[in-house]
Design a protein around this nucleic acid. Structure first.
Length: 119
RNA sequence: GGAGUUGGCCAGGCAGUCGCUCUGAUGCAUAGCAUCAGGGAGGAAAGUCCGGGCUCCACAGGACGGGAUGCCAGGUAACACCUGGGGGGCGAAAGCCCACGGCCAGUGCCACAGAAAAUAUACCGCCUUCUUUGGGAGGUAAGGGUGAAAUGGUGCGGUAAGAGCGCACCGCGUGCCUGGUAACAGGCAUGGCAGGGUAAACCCCAUCCGGAGCAAGACCAAAUAGGGGAACACAGGUGUGGUCCGCACUGUUCCCGGGUAGGUUGCACGAGGUGCGCGGUGACGCGCAUCCCAGAUGAAUGACUGCCCCGGCCCUAAAGGCUACGACAGAACCCGGCUUACAGGCCGACUCCCAUU
């Protein structure tokens, strides 16, 4: 099995999973994204997405953001703490370019790794 | 060559790496994983504005109410769509646009101006007549003035002045004839003129329409609470009480029904695509052959790199270089339309102008 895969088990799929993270999480945010994280009981990190219509009006834009976030998570997941992550869309994310968003996400993953290690 | 009109089509391409989802096969031995093969967004997937299929509910039949449509004919499963035709408007033309039934069934409304906005009526004027020379009485609707709109228009006759008062032509109404399936068009005769506009005002007439929607509907079904039944035990425990009886609550196992989270299904063969032939002016229909062409569900269809292409920018030009740029936009039960958004490009038909042969 390749290390850079992103399977269903690495995703948050249920409402209860989301609720657990929102309930008590560490956060990292900038103008593009807010990323929430909470340690989980399984061995691998899991990803959830929350891109609101308010922040990204067009369906095309929302899809693009989700794909970018999944891609970034997929490539970095080996370095991440075993926790549940939720990425929320920020103010200006719909206007930014792909490379800008990728850089932003990289920073978030690093910062959350430190925060999770402390807690 | 230029200006324009119109119909149709495309929606960057190729390669590599890393992924996502579905289908089939094989293997491991099953919440799956691996390998191989194959499929994986649009012309608008959008707005959710119409029309259907499908599903459930309701329903003897009908009426009222409500809504939609509104020249005619055809197409279609159906439509507010499409095609052909008629009428009106715009344009030099190709062509484009039109809610295009009825206010002599009824009711309402018509600001300002104006004498008067519809039961009618007369400000100035014109004519006749009377007169105390201020004006009064009568006739008139041709002229002036108002208005978006004023009781047909033009001309001639006629008259005191005028007036469809009379006549001709036009308009309008009615009747007949001819052509056309029809809308309608044309012709002839006749009536002297009926009498403003507004129906995206109520309304009238004709035709059509039951309601809700895939979160429809069907099936499986935890945990927790609780309902019904059977068997076992018929003993024990708790409460009431001084104690017994009694009364109330409480057991174990199994079954049944409802049903939440969740899952499966509906869910991808269809008013289906492509090609050919035939019928039709056309929309479209018929026949034959052939193809299987997305199926996600916190929601897949992507990211990165390189090359090319098309724009843009730099450069005197070429060569070359740069690039945050690559239209509008993402399926969610499925079709037929409409509407709106849209970088750039390709193909065809037609009109007008200029030049040349």
């Amino acid at each position: 099995m390749s290390a850079a895969r992103l399977q269903k088990r690495a995703r948050l799929l249920k409402a209860v999973d989301y609720a657990r993270v929102f309930d008590n999480a560490v956060r990292s945010s900038d103008q593009y994204f807010t990323v929430l994280a909470r340690k989980n009981d399984s061995s691998n990190p899991r990803l959830g997405l929350a891109i609101s219509k308010k922040r990204a009006k067009l369906a095309v834009t929302r899809n693009r953001l989700k794909r970018l976030i999944r891609e970034s998570f997929r490539l970095r997941q080996q370095e991440l703490f075993a926790a549940d992550y939720i990425v929320l869309a920020g103010q200006t994310c719909s206007k930014a370019t792909n490379s800008e968003l990728n850089h932003s996400l990289d920073k978030h993953w690093q910062r959350l790794n430190k925060l999770c290690a402390k807690s």
